Each structure stands twice: as C-alpha cells, then as structure tokens.
Amino acid sequence: MSLYLAYVMVGLAIAMPVGAITVEMTKQGLKNGFIHGWAVGLGGMTIDILLIFALYMGLASILAMPIIQVPMWLIGAGFLLFLGYDSIKNADQGITLSGEKVSKSFFSSYRNGLFVAVSPGNLVFWINVFGVVLAKSYDHGESTNFLIVAAGVLSGILLHDVGLMAIISITRKAMNHTMIKRLTIAAGVLLLGFAGYFIYEFILSIQVYI
C-alpha cells in the first residue's frame, strides 16, 4: 500500500505542470463542461496505459530507439498544429454555457486527448521511470511491483484530471461567451507553441544523424 500511495503522489507531481494535455483539457472543459474536459484526460491516459503494457511486455528497448522516437516529434507537432489552428479558427463555435445542452460528442474530445499524448516526451518518461522499476522488480522476482507502481501513477494522474475539471466546471459558471472564446484562442496559441517546441526538438534530433 505504501508503494502504491508513494506513486500516486508521483502521478500527481507529473500531472501538475502545465502541458499540452492540460491546455486541451482546460479548453474543452471551458467550452463543453466537465465530461468533455475529462475525456481529453482519458484519451491521454489511454496512450499511457498502452505504453505501460508495451514496457511490461518487454518492448522498452524498441520504444527507446531513435527511429521510433524521432518521427514522433513531428507526428506530435502535426497533431498539435491541427488542434491549435482549430481552436483559434473555431473559438466562437461550439461554446456551451453552463446549463445548456452540449452538442459535441464525447469521442471527439477523447480523440483530441489521444492526439496530444502522442509524443516522444511521453515515451521517454515511461521508459525512464518504468524501465527502472521493471528491471528492479524482475531482479527481485516481484514483477507485481511494476503493476502497483503503474496503478499508483495512473491514479495520481486521474486525481489531477478530475480535480482540475472540477475547478474548471465551477469557474465556467461565472463566464460568458466572450470570455470563453478568448480563453479558447489563448489555448490555441499555447498549443501552437507546444507544436513549435516539438518541431524544434525534431530538428535537433535530425541534426544528430546528419
């Protein structure tokens, strides 16, 4: 239990810094409410779970290969460019004020979470953290420790997502259409900024092999 709780705190610490997923969650939470913001987080966690499963099945060495990680900077940048452009272009569309019926589908928000989570930064984190944990677990003949750690980190991320969306859902009650539109544009600009960073990292990665 102590191992699980320790990694719940690790999960919370990981999720606290503002990243692309947090920005997209906030945007969707403001425009369409708690469920849609949380759907983005669930999309991100789906990628996390797939990566954990891949590591557990012994694919860490493959995921760590530059031929896998380098193209993902560009793929991730492409997704973020699309989401950022869409946020700015359609900032005044699809806004649902508190108490109004949401027309946007849950799956579209979930899909956005999947897109944002596709980045080598995510890969590197899971390989570095869980690669070490997995190695130690097998050395001591306790492979279940890996699953306990994974459950702890994912629980911490989930707690962060639910807490953030609870705050957003309360905050949006005091917002009007114009305020949400402006925040949506700001979110789009931030997503474009993250896309630029991904492209920069892609260029740096390519230069190493030139």
Rank of each mutant, 00 (worst) to 15 (best):
W126A: 05
L147E: 02
W126I: 04
N176M: 08
A151L: 12
F130C: 01
L147P: 05
Y138Q: 15
L190C: 06
V124Y: 08
S169P: 00
K136Y: 09
M165I: 01
V162D: 08
G152L: 00
F130E: 00
T184K: 09
A174L: 02
G193N: 09
G141A: 11
H177G: 00
L191C: 02
I148K: 12
T144K: 03
R182C: 00
F146Q: 04
L190G: 00
A151H: 13
A186G: 09
V153A: 12
I148T: 13
N176C: 03
T178K: 15
L164W: 08
G141Q: 10
I148S: 05
I148R: 07
D161A: 04
I168R: 08
F130R: 10
K136H: 06
L191G: 01
G193Q: 10
G152Q: 02
T184S: 11
L164M: 14
W126Q: 13
D161M: 04
D161P: 04
A187I: 09
L154T: 12
T178R: 10
N176V: 06
M179D: 01
L154R: 09
L190P: 00
N122S: 14
R172Q: 02
K181T: 12
I157P: 02
F194G: 02
K181F: 07
M165Q: 12
N176D: 15
I170D: 03
A150Q: 05
K136E: 14
V189M: 15
V133A: 13
H160K: 04
A186P: 01
H160Q: 01
R172G: 08
L154I: 07
V149H: 06
V129C: 06
I168C: 05
V133R: 03
D139T: 11
I185D: 05
A150K: 09
I148V: 15
E142F: 05
I127D: 06
A150N: 08
S155A: 12
I157L: 06
W126N: 06
D161Y: 07
W126H: 14
I157M: 13
M175C: 09
H160V: 03
I148C: 12
L190R: 00
V132L: 15
N176H: 10
M175Q: 14
G121Y: 14
M175L: 13
L192H: 02
V189C: 13
I168S: 00
I168H: 04
K173H: 06
L134I: 06
F146T: 13
G131H: 14
T178C: 02
I127E: 08
A186F: 14
D139K: 13
L191N: 07
I180P: 03
A186Y: 15
I157V: 15
G193H: 10
T184N: 11
L159S: 03
V189A: 10
N145L: 07
L183T: 03
R182Y: 13
I170V: 04
